[in-house]
Computed example of a mutant assay.
Amino acid sequence: MSVFLGCCGLSLEADLITRLMTGYNREARPVEDASTAVQVDLDMALAQVIDVNDREQLITINVWLRHFWYDEHLKWNASDYGGITSIRLTSTTIWTPDIILYNNVFDEGFAQQPEVKAIVNSDGYVTFLYPFTFKASCLINVEFFPYDEQSCPLKFSSWAYDGFSLNVTNRAPSGDLSNFIRNEEWTITELRAIRSEAYYSCCPEPYPDVTFYIIMKRESLYYLYYVVAPCIIILIISLLSFAMPPDSGEKLSLSTTMLLALVVFMQIVAENLPTTSRYIPFIGRYFGAIIAVVSLSSMLSIWILSFHFTNPNPKPPATWLKRLL
């Protein structure tokens, strides 16, 4: 009976938790020596890319964050408690590192850390795993849209503790993509983790951080089928207008209609891209070239019609014009 029951009729696990929580202060760092920094290892599993807003330069993702550290105040001898080597404690009852996302964009309903349990081993090793959905700022470079590749950094660090009190390191050189739910627009090629130290004007101490870089490539098939291909067809139809006889009366109206259609396509694409003056996107240059060709086609149609209808008794074209044509 003593194997299963502790003092006061409680189970051994309940007795163990009661002993560990007695006098425990979750506000104090879990070290015996105050000059020792708490070593916190970070890892992240990318579960889903929910949305990438090119215009507002925001990314909405769902991740599984993993924190690992030693709590010197949560140790016990497993043989004294029936061989119990690990227990689960609510994260709000023990010390947890104040790791936050520095480039987080606050929005109602996002970035709310759930109240989950942490796994505590008998040697004081704590494993804290929880899901996290948030919006983060991400500088989107659409110069080569729709063949672009983006790198979105997620910078995690302690807000209150410097590097002498809490040392943050990455557990692995890359994040976990084994449970990633495929996105129809973006292909994730890499999830790189890099540790660095930053110094701020307020404080002389270093502030370590771990940044996960989401490297993703845009799937271009959608834009090729619905945007690029129709524009090529419009260009071909516009050039074929030269084969129409001037007396048909639709030569100029066809070129004008094609030009307006291209302008509408360009506006639709521009509405979904971020406003920038640093470069002209690849697809913008593509539209500009096609609009220039179609505009030139319209001007040549006007010129041909003016030659045809201006003089009822037309003369043979000049020698220089024959050579040009």
Results as ranks from 00 to 15, higher is better:
I194M: 05
R195H: 09
R195G: 12
S196P: 04
S196H: 11
E197S: 15
E197D: 15
A198M: 14
Y199M: 04
Y199F: 09
Y200D: 10
Y200R: 06
S201T: 12
C202A: 05
C202M: 07
C203W: 02
C203T: 11
P204A: 06
E205F: 13
P206E: 08
P206A: 05
P206T: 05
P206R: 01
Y207A: 02
Y207D: 06
Y207S: 09
P208C: 06
V210C: 06
V210D: 03
T211K: 02
T211V: 05
T211F: 01
F212G: 02
F212A: 00
F212Y: 08
F212R: 02
F212V: 00
I214G: 03
I214M: 00
I214A: 01
I214K: 02
I215F: 12
M216A: 14
R218E: 13
E219V: 15
S220R: 07
S220N: 03
L221E: 15
Y222G: 01
Y223R: 00
Y223T: 11
Y223S: 07
Y223V: 10
L224R: 04
Y226A: 01
Y226L: 11
Y226K: 12
V228T: 10
V228L: 03
V228Q: 00
V228W: 05
A229E: 03
P230A: 02
C231A: 10
C231V: 01
I232V: 14
I232C: 13
I232T: 11
I232A: 10
I233L: 09
I234F: 02
I234R: 00
L235T: 15
L235Y: 15
I236R: 10
I236V: 15
I236Q: 11
I237M: 05
I237P: 08
I237E: 11
S238L: 10
S238A: 15
S238C: 15
L239E: 15
L239N: 14
L239G: 05
L240R: 01
L240M: 06
S241E: 00
S241L: 01
F242W: 10
F242T: 07
F242Q: 02
F242R: 04
P245G: 08
P245F: 12
P246Q: 05
P246Y: 09
P246F: 03
P246N: 07
D247A: 05
D247F: 10
D247E: 09
S248T: 14
S248M: 09
G249M: 06
E250Q: 06
E250C: 01
E250F: 06
K251A: 04
L252F: 13
L252A: 11
S253N: 11
L254M: 01
L254C: 09
L254D: 03
S255L: 11
T256E: 14
T256Q: 12
